[in-house]
Design a protein around this nucleic acid. Structure first.
Lengths: 201, 201
DNA sequence: AACAAAAGCTACTGATTAGTAGCGGAAATT
DNA sequence: AATTTCCGCTACTAATCAGTAGCTTTTGTT
C-alpha cells in the first residue's frame, strides 16, 4: 500500500512521456518520412536526449511500429464507435473522412506503402499485423455488404475496392490541395470523399 | 572527316551506356525508393563501377533527376501522339492507362510525392520542373475541356480532379493488386481506370 | 545531513554510403 | 616496338546516424 502509489505515479509520468514521444515521432514521420527521420529529431522534438528515448523504445523500428499501432488502434476504436444504424457505405465514408482528417491534422497516412523497407519492417511486426488484419477483416466485410446491397459497384472485385479505399487514405492529392490550392481542410475532405466514391465524372 | 566518325562512335557508345544506367536506376528506384537506392546498386546492375557511373552523372540527385525527366518525356511524347480525334476524357484515360502500364512494367510512378527530400530536390531541378509544368498545362486544359463538355464533374474544382488524376498514376492499390491478388496487368489497368473515373459505386 | 538509486546527458562506436584519388592496363599513335 | 592517352577500377575519405558506455545530477531514503 505504500509502494504502489509511488510506482503508479512514476509509471504515469513514464506513460505520459511515452505518448509525447509517439506524438513527436508521428509528427516527424509525417513530415520527413521514415528514412529521413532521425532519432535525434524525435528526441529533440520531445526535448529529451537520444539515450532517454531508448529507455522507452529499443529501436527506431520499434518506435515507428508503436506509432503506427497507435494510429491503427485509433482507427479500430473509431470503427467500433460508429453508429451501427449507418449503412455499410456510410460507415466506410465516415472512416475515410476520419482518416483524412487525421492526416490533415498532421497525423500519418494509414498505409505506409511508400518505402519497401518500411513495409517489410511492418510485416515482421506481429502486433502491427494483428491490427491490420483485424481492421482489414472488418472493412472487407463492409465492402462486401455494400456490394451485395448494390451500394458499391458489384462488377468490381472486392479487392479492387478495398485496396483503392486504403489508397485514398494516403492519397497525395490531399497534400497537393493543401499546399498548392490553399484549400480548407473541410473542403478537401468533402472533395476527396466525393472523388473516391463517385470518381472524376 | 577522319576524326568525326571516331568521336560519334564513342559518343554513341557513351549514350548507349547512359541509357543502360538510366534503365538500371529506374529499376532500382521503383524497387527500393530513393533513400535506399545506393550508387553501388545502380553501378552493379549496369555492370560497371561507381566511379564510372560518376563519369555520366555527377551526383545521385542528377541521376535520379534524369531518370524522372526521361519518364516525363515519355509521357509528353505519348500525349503528343494521342489521336486528336479522341475526346478530352478519352485522352486522359489513355494517358492514365499508359502510366499504369509503365509502372506495371517495372517503371516509376509519375509523381514521387513520397519523400519530401525527393520532392524538394526535384523542385530545384529546372529541367524537370519545365517538363512537369508543360505536362501540367496540357492536362489541366484537358480536364477543363472535359468539365465544360460535362464529361467530368463540373462541381469539383479542376485542381481536385487534376491532383487526384496524378495521384492515380502512383496509386499503391496497383502494387497491392499485383502482389496480393495476383491479378493480371490488363485487369488491374481496367479496374483502376474504372475506379478512377467512376469511383467505388 | 549522508547516502543510495535512478534518470538523463555528453560523448563515443561502428556501419553505411556518397563521392574521389590515383593506379593499372588497354587501346590508339608514332 | 615504344609511348602516350584515356578508361575503369580498387581502395579510400568524410559525413551521417543508429545505438551505447559511463558519468553527472537529481530525487528520494535513512
Amino acid at each position: 500500500m505504500s509502494i504502489l502509489p509511488r510506482l503508479s505515479f512514476k509509471n504515469q509520468a513514464f506513460k505520459l512521456r511515452e505518448n509525447a514521444i509517439l506524438d513527436a515521432a508521428t509528427a516527424v514521420l509525417s513530415q520527413k518520412g521514415y528514412d529521413l527521420m532521425t532519432m535525434d529529431d524525435v528526441a529533440g522534438a520531445v526535448g529529451i536526449s537520444k539515450p532517454s528515448l531508448y529507455k522507452h523504445f529499443k529501436s527506431k523500428e520499434e518506435l515507428v511500429g508503436e506509432a503506427l499501432i497507435r494510429l491503427l488502434d485509433g482507427a479500430l476504436d473509431y470503427v467500433a464507435a460508429i453508429d451501427p444504424a449507418l449503412s455499410p457505405v456510410e460507415k466506410l465514408s465516415a472512416l475515410l473522412e476520419w482518416a483524412l482528417r487525421v492526416r490533415l491534422d498532421g497525423g500519418l497516412p494509414f498505409l505506409p506503402s511508400t518505402s519497401p523497407h518500411v513495409r517489410d519492417m511492418l510485416i515482421r511486426n506481429v502486433k502491427y499485423m494483428l491490427r491490420v488484419m483485424k481492421l482489414n477483416r472488418q472493412l472487407e466485410a463492409l465492402v462486401k455488404q455494400a456490394q451485395q446491397q448494390g451500394q458499391l459497384n458489384r462488377d468490381l472485385p472486392t479487392d479492387v475496392i478495398l485496396f483503392s479505399y486504403y489508397a485514398r487514405t494516403c492519397d497525395p492529392a490531399v497534400e497537393y490541395l493543401q499546399k498548392y490550392s490553399k484549400m480548407e481542410a473541410d473542403d478537401i475532405v468533402r472533395h476527396m470523399l466525393k472523388v473516391s466514391f463517385e470518381g472524376f465524372r
